Computed example of a mutant assay.
Amino acid sequence: MQANERKTIVSELITLIETGNAHVSLDETINDIPADFRTVIPENLPYSIWQLLEHIRITQWDIVEFCLSPDHKSPKWPDEYWPEKTDSISDEKWEETLEQIKKDRNRFFDLLNNDKTDLYSPLPHGDGQNIFREALLIADHTSYHLGEILVLRRLLKCWK
């Protein structure tokens, strides 16, 4: 692969993960959510905004760790990928989760930007996964759950 082609692919992957392209970005999705709405679970729905956001963090962290460390042990599915229901979440914990999402994204972006990272060969410690696939997985998984957060915000009447 030529350097120009690689730079284009990496740039597109990073843009997809950061902005969602045709979807609303993480920052836009969670901007200005009133603290008392973070843990509300609307009738007939299984999760709160908080649980979805924390699930995004846990899953993205797991993907990034899998890519970076052959010794990584993933959490137990599904129990350890979803936080328990809670009546409230502190501003500190909310911000900590957002910061960890951004930190893990940046760790993954560093991996993508490293010219020595092979985007397409299977990872030696996986069962066919490659970095390109994992980048698409982060983008796809995140956009899916951000869409759910937007639906929750609409139901709670706290969206534009």
Rank of each mutant, 00 (worst) to 15 (best):
Q2E: 14
Q2S: 15
N4R: 12
E5P: 03
K7D: 12
T8S: 11
I9Y: 09
V10T: 11
V10Y: 04
S11V: 13
E12Y: 15
L13C: 10
I14N: 03
L16S: 11
L16F: 08
I17G: 03
T19A: 06
A22T: 08
V24M: 13
V24N: 10
L26N: 01
E28D: 15
T29E: 05
T29H: 05
I30C: 06
N31L: 06
F37E: 11
R38D: 04
N44P: 05
P46G: 02
P46R: 03
P46N: 03
S48V: 01
S48F: 01
I49A: 03
E54N: 03
H55G: 05
H55P: 03
I58G: 05
T59Q: 05
W61M: 09
W61D: 07
W61L: 08
D62N: 07
I63S: 00
I63V: 09
V64W: 01
E65T: 06
C67I: 03
L68G: 09
S69L: 09
P70F: 10
D71L: 05
D71V: 04
P75Q: 08
K76Y: 10
W77S: 07
W77Y: 08
P78R: 06
P78D: 10
D79T: 11
D79N: 13
E80Y: 06
E84L: 09
T86R: 07
D87K: 13
I89Y: 06
E92R: 09
K93S: 07
K93D: 10
E95I: 06
E95C: 08
E95W: 02
L98K: 02
L98V: 04
E99L: 13
I101P: 02
K103G: 11
K103M: 13
K103T: 15
N106K: 07
L111E: 00
L112P: 01
L112W: 01
L112Y: 02
N113M: 12
N114Q: 13
N114E: 11
D115H: 13
D118G: 03
Y120H: 14
P124L: 02
P124E: 04
H125C: 11
G126L: 07
D127F: 10
D127G: 07
Q129C: 11
N130Q: 09
I131K: 00
I131P: 01
I131F: 00
F132Y: 15
R133P: 02
E134Y: 06
E134H: 10
A135Y: 01
A135C: 14
A135D: 04
L136T: 05
L136D: 03
L137V: 09
I138D: 00
I138H: 00
I138M: 00
D140V: 02
D140C: 02
H141F: 02
T142K: 00
S143H: 11
Y144C: 13
H145P: 09
G147A: 04
L150G: 08
L150W: 14
L152H: 02
L152F: 05
L155A: 03
K157L: 11
C158G: 05
K160A: 12
K160Y: 15
K160R: 14
